[in-house]
């Protein structure tokens, strides 16, 4: 009995080591979204481009779509940008853009230079919609199902690997759901 007491520190440490090991498997900077499996939040943004369409809650749903948060000042956004043109072309998957905490002329010039893959781009200079979506950095990408519910959030630039292994399989699965 008394000997067992002396084992307590060792047992506690073994438990701790397990948790520390778990800690190594994930990126501490990534925050899970509170929106998962909930309807997309209420928001209504004016269009970024002259003659273009704005973005609001009702525009989501009807079909599976992506919502991408981007800004012209955001370097990783530029890095991921080419992938969206590919996605719209190859997958016939609509992508909606939220232009986040940006200035209109710069954002317009950015899209002009790099191409505009977005079906609609909402302009959100003062983070109104961003706060509703719980955005804490750019880029962020959400997958929204046909009922307008948010099913997945990805933080940071999307590259080929994430697209192929995570996003597209999910999109296919959601398309098969009734």
């Amino acid at each position: 009995m008394k000997r067992a007491l002396f084992l307590i520190p060792l047992l506690l440490f073994i438990g701790l080591a397990g948790y520390l090991g778990f800690g190594l498997t994930r990126d501490a900077r990534i925050l899970p979204s509170t929106l998962i499996d909930k309807p997309a939040p209420d928001f209504d943004l004016p269009p970024l481009l002259p003659g273009g369409q704005g973005l609001k809650t009702a525009d989501l749903g009807g079909q599976v779509s992506l919502v991408n948060v981007f800004a012209s000042w955001c370097v990783p956004c530029r890095a991921e940008h080419p992938i969206w043109a590919k996605v719209t072309k190859d997958e016939r998957l609509p992508i909606y853009g939220i232009n986040w905490k940006d200035k209109r002329p710069q954002a317009q010039a950015w899209l002009e230079q790099l191409g505009n893959p977005y079906a609609r781009v909402g302009f959100d200079p003062d983070n109104k919609a961003g706060i509703e979506w719980g955005v804490y950095g750019a880029p962020e990408t959400y997958v929204v199902d046909r009922n307008g519910r948010v099913r997945f959030k990805y933080v940071g630039p999307v590259f080929e690997e994430t697209l192929k292994n995570t996003i597209l399989p999910l999109v296919r699965k959601l398309r098969e759901e009734s």
Partner: peptide, 14 residues
């Protein structure tokens, strides 16, 4: 790529 992502993302924050 996995390593680059947090790096780029962390830059502005840092």
């Amino acid at each position: 790529m996995r390593l680059i992502r947090p790096m780029l993302f962390g830059l502005a924050a840092l």
